[in-house]
Amino acid sequence: MFRPLPDSSEGPTVTVFVEGQPVEAYVGETAASVLLRHLGTARTTSISESPRAPFCMMGCCFDCLAEIDGKGSTQSCLEPVRDGMTIARQMSARKVVAR
């Protein structure tokens, strides 16, 4: 879906783990962008269990909710990649709390 410019692929990278697999991430991109590049989706919905992918990339749609470093319901578009970060899709469960 997305490919890096030479500036990115030759720039600094970190290693993150996407559902257990180590992958290279470009410093500056977010966990949502890594999910888009590698799996194409971030979550499945709790009602119809349809797949969703990051939509706005700026924190206002919540379709990027994923599990980051073990913490569910995290807006992955607001999480810049860090070395060793674990990223996983969030399947169905409705875990958003404190409403």
Binding site: M1, F2, R3, P4, L5, D7, S8, G11, Y26, G28, E29, T30, S33, L36, R37, G40, T41, S50, P51, R52, A53, P54, F55, C56, M57, M58, D63, C77, P80
Partner: peptide, 25 residues
């Protein structure tokens, strides 16, 4: 509009500015 593969232009531009990424397909 909820299908993976559909996103906003702003979102794609953010991918460009923050990760140097271009859409393809």
């Amino acid at each position: 509009w909820t299908h993976p593969g559909v996103m906003t232009v702003g979102a794609a531009q953010i991918m460009l500015k923050s990760g140097g990424l271009l859409p393809e397909g």
